[in-house]
């Protein structure tokens, strides 16, 4: 697995044979999940968890790769979901509407990134992207003729190809499983080799990267748009699965969820991002708590992470396991 933070972004390492049994177990668990759940609600939790894995990976494809903290990605999710919803509820084929949603998300990211990434870095970048997120939220609320305002767009149709349609929870589950896998694999492929090294160099030392001859602006912009495309794919799914899109999709709870995933995992640590995404969805469910508890848990975990393990838990856990292995060999 590509691990940006360990410096292996640019050089894909051969897969350790000892990892295959673990991967096989994960694959069996993921594929068999719909057969072992007790009720539809548990299946819904599984769908939502995989959806969050997808958006977590999409977000980390920019934030983890470049080190830039974006608050705009929830807005990209919303733009795609709204575009899918608006078009598909107005007679456009759902597949085309979904594609249009992805394009809308990408174009929005291109427009924002082209201006912002040229001019600002670090904290200022975060604030500007937060401002963009707020604008999308306000527009979604206020542009009632198009977005139907606070009540949102509902009765969104879902995709069907021939006689096969997304008309059951089980099908939605496998659809989101495929999407999350696709987002993961495409992201890994995209971050391989020279491109991965370029982004890692920006994260490590942007000034030096430019002094070496890198057009950092273009590299960041391409990562920003790529990440928005992945977010757009997940946004289109969201609209079809929930059949309703409201302005809340661009609001703080989603931004905070994305931020919590990356902060807790550690930016650029793919396995950590997947685990943190699953934990932040399934953890509150196991404790039978609701949305508010998830937000509380996210905030609390971020606070503890920043204080105890500021680079995220994945590198800390990896170091701990390495020390244990070394001690066992002695």
């Amino acid at each position: 697995m590509t691990d940006l933070a360990s410096g292996r972004a640019g050089t894909v390492q051969p897969t350790s044979p000892t990892k295959w049994p673990v991967r096989l177990a994960v694959a069996v668990a993921a594929l068999g999940f719909p057969f072992v759940v007790a009720n539809d609600y548990q299946l819904h939790v599984g769908i939502f968890a995989l959806f969050v894995v997808g958006i977590g990976i999409a977000y980390d494809s920019f934030v983890g790769a470049t080190g830039y903290r974006s608050f705009a990605h929830a807005a990209f999710l919303a733009v795609s979901a709204y575009a899918t919803a608006i078009l598909s509820t107005n007679g456009i084929d759902v597949g085309l509407a979904w594609l249009a949603g992805v394009v809308a998300s990408a174009v929005t990211a291109l427009a924002i990134g082209a201006v912002v990434l040229r001019r600002v870095r670090g904290f200022v970048f975060s604030i500007v992207t937060l401002g963009f997120g707020v604008i999308v939220y306000v527009v979604a609320n206020a542009w009632v003729e198009v977005t139907r305002g606070p009540q949102g767009i509902y009765q969104i149709p879902s995709l069907s190809i021939g006689t096969f349609g997304l008309n059951s929870l089980t099908r939605y589950y496998y659809a989101v499983l495929v999407l999350a896998m696709l987002v993961h694999i495409v992201s890994l492929l995209w971050l391989r080799g020279a491109r991965g090294r370029r982004l890692l160099a920006i994260r490590e030392n942007e000034d030096l990267a430019e002094a070496c001859g890198l057009n950092a602006y273009l590299a960041k912009l391409s990562a920003f748009v790529f990440s928005a495309v992945l977010m757009g794919v997940m946004g289109g799914f969201y609209a079809q699965y929930y059949t309703i899109v409201t302005p809340d999709l661009a609001w703080l709870q989603w931004i905070m969820l994305l931020m919590a995933i990356v902060v807790i995992a550690g930016p650029g640590h793919r396995i950590g991002v997947i685990c943190a995404s699953l934990f932040l969805v399934i953890g509150p469910e196991i404790l039978r708590a609701g949305q508010s508890f998830r937000e509380l848990l996210s905030g609390l975990l971020m606070l503890i992470t920043v204080l105890v393990s500021p680079e995220g838990w994945t590198p800390t856990i990896k170091r701990y396991l390495a020390r244990r292995r070394a001690a066992a060999r002695r």
């Binding site: 090294r197 890692l200 160099a201 490590e204 030096l208 990267a209 070496c212």
Partner: peptide, 18 residues
């Protein structure tokens, strides 16, 4: 100034690729 998380060889490869 170097890229601390990259290997020595990766530093050099990146600098050429840039």
């Amino acid at each position: 100034q170097v890229f601390p998380e990259m290997l020595v060889t990766e530093n050099l490869i990146f600098a050429a690729e840039a």
